[in-house]
Amino acid sequence: MAYNEKLADRVRARFAGLRNVEEKKMMGGLTFMYNGKMCVGIIKDDLMCRIDPALHEDSIARTGCRTMDFTNRPMSGFIMVDERGMKTQKDFDYWIDLALDFNKKAKPSKKKK
């Protein structure tokens, strides 16, 4: 499954000043790990953001945003944003900022042994 390279470049540019960023191909797209924790990703043409679950309902009420339902299991705190929700740089930065803010308190995934 391909992912939107232009969107990946937008994320790379936004993360350029950060340390401890790692790109991983997963979920059929590209995921950006920050400080060892999943932060944002790109699946096809959509931006996936890991946000504070307390902000989930308000977030999905915004234009272009929906709950991530990748395996028919909706996940609170994981959202998908389509191009309508990130047309402007201000909109794009809003979603990235939400993900970066939550990353500070997010728990890292358990390491597989």
Rank of each mutant, 00 (worst) to 15 (best):
L55Q: 12
R66N: 09
F15L: 15
F92R: 13
C65D: 02
M33L: 12
D93Q: 12
K90T: 07
D97K: 10
C49D: 00
K25T: 13
N20S: 10
V21A: 05
C39S: 13
R50P: 02
M33G: 01
D58K: 11
D45Q: 11
M48I: 14
F70P: 01
I96A: 01
M48F: 09
V40K: 05
M26Q: 12
V40F: 09
I60M: 04
D45K: 14
P74N: 13
F78I: 10
I60L: 01
G64P: 09
R84V: 02
N20G: 05
A16C: 01
N72R: 14
I96M: 14
R14N: 13
T88C: 06
R73S: 04
M86E: 04
D46L: 10
D45Y: 04
D45A: 10
Q89I: 00
K24N: 05
D52V: 04
M86F: 10
V21Y: 04
D46S: 14
G29Y: 15
K44F: 10
K24D: 05
W95G: 00
Q89T: 03
L55R: 06
T88D: 04
N35K: 08
F92V: 13
D93E: 14
I60F: 04
I96S: 02
W95R: 00
A13L: 10
G29R: 14
V81A: 05
T88Q: 06
D97S: 12
